[in-house]
């Protein structure tokens, strides 16, 4: 479980995040949704410690990550896996080396065990035969999947995905969403997924936080999202033609 308390962040004189609090539960995907540029990625970066919030605190299972000492931070970092918006694969390394990297850095596993683990996660994301490929030879969807493989290789307790399916076709998107959900349930991770894709919201959104211009305006499950009574959320949800057609029909 991850809890954030009153997170605010400004860049220069522009306030990006305004006093956001919330709880992200274990064993199911937690979604952060909102339009482009509302600060979703910045919020995620605050949570994982890449950006230091101006005020507010992040707790990882009651460990204070924001103001904790270096030992706590190091401990938490070992338990984090993150998929970046563009995959963020190291482009001088092969797929295999990319996926193995967290194991090289964070563990002292013997070589054979590492190789086995790498193959295991690559198979899991459906890329069993791509070991020796370079990132530049991969398609966007494959990069995302390698990114996921790298994020989960060290059995993280906390998994973060920044727009796992932006730029992918609807079918691949669904596969990736399903994959994230499966991994979350199987390994009982606390998973946070940033997205603006309504398909994901309807598919895996048991627990959703809606951000609008840096403020949290709503939270709840996807079954309630169409009747939230929040105008900004309605605008966001029904911007999707399918959702809008559904609303007209009922």
């Amino acid at each position: 479980m991850i809890e954030i308390q009153r997170i605010s962040k400004s860049f220069g004189d522009r306030q990006i995040l305004k006093d956001i609090s919330g709880v992200f539960e274990k064993g199911k995907p937690n979604l952060i949704i909102g339009a482009s540029g509302t600060g979703k990625s910045v919020l995620l970066k605050c949570i994982v410690g890449l950006v230091k919030p101006d005020t507010g605190t992040v707790f990882y299972d009651d460990r204070n990550f924001t103001d904790g000492d270096r030992k706590v931070k190091k401990e938490v970092r070992r338990e984090i896996g993150m998929l970046f918006q563009g995959g963020a694969l190291f482009d001088s390394k092969t797929v295999e080396q990319n996926v193995c990297f967290p194991l090289d850095i964070l563990t002292s596993m013997p070589k054979e065990e590492k190789a086995e683990r790498v193959n295991q996660v690559l198979t899991r994301v459906g890329l069993a035969n791509a070991n020796k490929k370079m990132p530049s030879e991969l398609s966007g969807g494959m990069r995302k999947r390698v990114g996921i493989a790298r994020a989960i290789v060290n059995n993280p307790k906390y998994l973060f995905c920044d727009e796992p399916n932006s730029g992918l076709d609807p079918q691949t998107s669904i596969l990736i969403d399903e994959l994230i959900k499966e991994l979350t349930v199987d390994y009982d991770t606390t998973t946070i997924v940033v997205t603006h894709d309504m398909n994901s919201v309807m598919g895996i959104g048991d627990n959703i936080m809606f951000i609008f211009q840096g403020k949290k305006l709503w939270e709840g499950a996807n079954k309630d999202i169409t009747h939230s009574g929040v105008k900004e959320l309605d605008d966001f949800v029904f911007a999707n033609k399918v959702m809008n057609a559904m609303r007209q029909n009922t």
Partner: peptide, 13 residues
């Protein structure tokens, strides 16, 4: 810009 540096820092490097 491709967030590779962020990826390193998330791992505590």
């Amino acid at each position: 810009i491709t967030e590779q540096i962020d990826a390193l820092e998330v791992m505590g490097i």
